[in-house]
Write a protein that binds this DNA or RNA. Structure first.
Length: 284
DNA sequence: CATCATACCTGTTCGC
DNA sequence: TGCGAACAGGTATGAT
């Protein structure tokens, strides 16, 4: 019901840059060692120089050759509180579990009294300290497919779909094929492209491949425009929720009338273990 | 190698 | 109303 995908992680990245770049981490407090690996001391006293995103992974680079790498998976949150964030929106404890409470696993204490809390109710996510030079050697990052907005060419997209008979929705969500797309945007992109999610990827015709390529970019751009989708746990570091959940095309709309073929209701089935929403009147 | 199923978690929703 | 079952889904891992 929620899920951070490219637009959500990009929104987090942009805010973290605002609050973090140029500041030092005085102390990295590890409250839950299970989701953490590496040595917190490696970044203590170092200054953040940049924040990057690889697919759905966030990377904080420091000026001493180390980085913090984090995958927030489903329910991870980075929440900032500090002097350069005035009047943060009230965050209900229901959404965050509170700051510094049982769902807070890591706290970054900054040199300006600011704090960044890593919260994660379900603890699927992880935080690691590694050498910056080794970030791209992390297995998950190394295996990532091209970024939708830099690297994923139409040629690569055609290749990616033509080489497998797996369901097209499963393929565009496969992070080793292309990075950043998860369940919400996959559902909406396939609706926009008028393609049935369960079609074998290699059964798409040239025009359909083009339509899906364009639709994927369009829904991701739309997601970023609204600052991501907040259904359950997604909030940006200042505590704001995104708005895309109010603008989905078919995701989460089982039983509602299709925005395209208005006499048809959106249906839901499971595909690859995930909720899949589609309009049989539009998607063939 | 390609594909599929299950585990990891816990809060919320659903069905009886 | 209460309570257990089902569900939510990104990814690692093991099975087929």
């Amino acid at each position: 019901m929620l899920m951070p995908e490219l637009p959500e992680v990009e929104s987090i990245k942009l805010q973290l840059k605002r609050y973090f770049v140029g500041h030092k981490v005085e102390n990295l407090e590890i409250k839950n060692p299970k989701i953490f690996s590496g040595n917190p001391k490696d970044i203590e006293g170092a200054m953040v120089t940049d924040i990057r995103r690889f697919g759905k992974v966030l990377v904080f680079d420091f000026d001493n050759g180390y980085s913090v790498v984090s995958h927030i998976k489903l329910t991870g949150q980075f929440l900032y509180r500090g002097p350069n964030l005035k009047n943060p929106p009230e965050i209900s404890k229901k959404v965050t579990g509170g700051l510094g409470g049982s769902h807070t696993h890591v706290i970054f204490h900054l040199d300006n009294e600011g704090k960044l809390f890593y919260n994660d109710v379900r603890r699927f996510g992880w935080v690691r300290v590694v050498k910056t030079a080794e970030v791209e050697q992390i297995d998950f990052i190394k295996k990532l497919g091209p970024e939708p907005f830099s690297g994923l060419t139409m040629d690569k997209f055609v290749q990616m779909l033509s080489k497998t008979r797996r369901a097209v929705k499963v393929v565009i969500m496969d992070q080793t094929q292309m990075s950043g797309v998860g369940n919400i945007y996959a559902n909406d992109a396939l609706f926009l492209a008028k393609i049935d999610p369960k079609r074998p990827a290699n059964s798409l015709e040239g025009q359909e491949v083009k339509a899906l390529y364009d639709a994927t970019h369009e829904v991701l751009e739309n997601g970023m425009k609204y600052g991501g989708a907040s259904e359950l746990a997604f909030v940006t570091p200042d505590g704001r929720e995104g708005g895309y959940q109010n603008h989905t095309l078919v995701y989460g709309k089982e039983g509602q009338l299709c925005p395209g073929e208005k006499s048809v209701k959106i249906q839901k089935y499971m595909l690859g273990g995930r909720g899949t929403y589609w309009c049989p009147g539009v998607q063939k």
